[in-house]
């Protein structure tokens, strides 16, 4: 009991110290761009109300989820196809290697040029950013499936969708999860960039509007909200990962203790 309390204390100590330090260090700040923490917290409630949540945060989130979902579907689907086929893999490898190397944000101007400034473009921007890590990791995962398990499937004549669902996707899932996690942070970044480069609503847009309008404490609060969003989504991802890869961590632990 005291041990867990001690742990919680340790976990909370540094954040508390940092916040308190910031509070006092900025208390007398007269710099326009670095307002006191107190001011930032004061503007928070009226900057981020239920109404602004609905008008600014929600559209961002919806686009993010659609884009991330599409990136997952596309990346895993194509990844299984390419990973399972040796020739196709050899054929596409240099292209994929090159496309992956292109920093995704530079594609945003192209997409805006081609598809305009609407919601589809903003979703597309998220998909284009997130699909690569998922695709390439899925290819790696599918390529690395265990040969004995593959033989087992063949000899028991487990084929088609049943094979993909219960063997390929599950065997590749640790690697797919690695890609999905990388993709999630890229997708959030792409969401913000898409909104910075021309949008009329959304979190990124709002924060930039605050900056352009010199509403600095409000801008700081917006940065907080963005940061919080990243933290919460990463937390949610960890929870999902724990469920999906429960078997993997168990098997790894069993393997380690066995040796």
């Amino acid at each position: 009991m005291t041990r867990t309390l001690g742990r919680i204390g340790l976990a909370l100590a540094l954040p508390v110290i940092l916040l308190v330090t910031w509070w006092f260090a900025s208390a007398d700040s007269t710099s326009f761009y670095q307002p006191p923490l107190e001011t930032i917290i004061k503007v928070f409630p009226h900057t981020w109300t239920a109404a602004t949540f609905k008008s600014d945060v929600l559209p961002s989130l919806i686009r993010l989820f659609i884009g991330y979902g599409l990136a997952l579907l596309l990346g895993i689907g194509l990844g299984v196809l390419i990973g399972a086929n040796r020739r196709l893999r050899a054929l596409l490898e240099p292209i994929l290697e090159f496309l992956r190397a292109i920093p995704p944000p530079v594609l945003v101007p192209v997409l805006i040029l081609i598809a305009g400034l609407g919601d589809p473009t903003k979703v597309l921007v998220i998909v284009v950013g997130g699909v690569w890590p998922i695709l390439l990791n899925t290819v790696e995962g599918v390529r690395g499936v265990d040969e004995v398990l593959a033989d087992t499937c063949r000899s028991y004549q487990i084929r088609g969708w049943l094979r993909i669902r219960t063997f390929i996707l599950r065997a590749a899932s640790p690697q797919i999860v690695v890609g999905a996690r990388q993709a999630l942070s890229i997708c959030i970044i792409m969401m913000v960039i898409g909104e910075l480069l021309g949008a009329t609503d959304g979190l990124g847009y709002t924060v930039v509007e605050f900056q352009r309008g010199f509403q600095i404490p409000e801008m700081w609060s917006g940065v907080f909200v963005l940061g919080l969003l990243g933290v919460l989504l990463s937390l949610a991802f960890t929870l999902v990962e724990r469920r999906v890869l429960n078997w993997y961590h168990g098997a790894r632990a069993a393997e380690r203790s066995g040796h």
Partner: peptide, 28 residues
Amino acid sequence: LAIVFQEYGRSLFPWLRVAENIELPLKS
């Protein structure tokens, strides 16, 4: 025809429970 492989650790699906492992070929 059924095969029992030497590498028991690698011939069972680690993400399926024991009963599901046995059930899978029956599903197919």
